Amino acid sequence: MGQITVEKNVGGIEGLCVITPAVHGDKRGYFMETYNQRDMEEAGLNLNFVQDNQSSSTKGVLRGLHFQKQYPQGKLVRAIRGSVFDVAVDLRKHSKTYGKWFGVELTEENKKQFYIPEGFAHGFLVLSDIAEFCYKCTDFYHPGDEGGIAWNDPEIGITWPEVQGEYDGTASAKGYTLSDSTPLNLSEKDQNWGGLKDAFQF
């Protein structure tokens, strides 16, 4: 190994991992391995990725909380530009931590990666003016298989950094802002998910 440091079961939730790569830098810039199968396997992560995705979002955009029901995806996520607060929620019905969440800030500076195995809902909030977000998936995207949970479900109780507003019983972003008054920005679909009590369980 040597090119990555893996913190396993972060937040006390089995399977969640924060991965920090070794960064080799000098006055010219830096180099790092963003993925090495051998290093991952030596760390106990035997993963088979089949799809890479990338998105760009502006400050205040919140994407999530998403999952696929019949074709669950494990995800290895990172921010290559800007900063996001990334969140996973345990939806494994036999898990001791069912319904528990963990969040980590991923930035282009800290270069951390977050591994979220199958059986979790996932989402992120953009904290910088612009963020570019990359992730590797263990299964393909399947249209029509999407599920989701309200980003502000009080039963889960995610503490989204900088978010201000009063819960009105729905997933609507209306009235929510970041601390600098940037409006919270969610898709129409993400403003209509239900809570944990109605969510699909793995």
Rank of each mutant, 00 (worst) to 15 (best):
F120I: 05
D52Y: 08
P117G: 10
Q68E: 03
V84D: 04
G82M: 01
L178D: 00
S181M: 05
E146F: 12
A22K: 12
K174E: 14
F114L: 07
K111G: 03
V104G: 05
I80G: 00
V18E: 07
N36A: 12
H24D: 07
A88G: 00
I19G: 01
K136N: 00
S55Q: 11
M40H: 01
K59D: 05
D180F: 06
G123P: 04
E162S: 07
H142F: 10
N36K: 14
F120E: 05
Y98E: 08
S55P: 11
G12W: 06
K8M: 00
E132R: 03
F49S: 03
H94R: 12
V50K: 08
Q68P: 00
P154A: 12
A150Y: 02
G157T: 09
D190W: 00
T58E: 14
Y167W: 15
E166Q: 10
L47W: 12
A131L: 02
S55E: 09
R92K: 15
Q68D: 01
Q73F: 05
D168W: 04
T182Y: 04
P72N: 03
S56F: 13
G148C: 11
G157D: 08
Y71I: 12
V77L: 12
H122A: 02
Q191L: 05
T97E: 09
W160M: 03
Q68L: 09
D190Y: 07
Q201E: 14
N48G: 15
E7H: 15
I158R: 07
F67Q: 04
N192M: 04
T177R: 01
L47K: 01
Y135K: 05
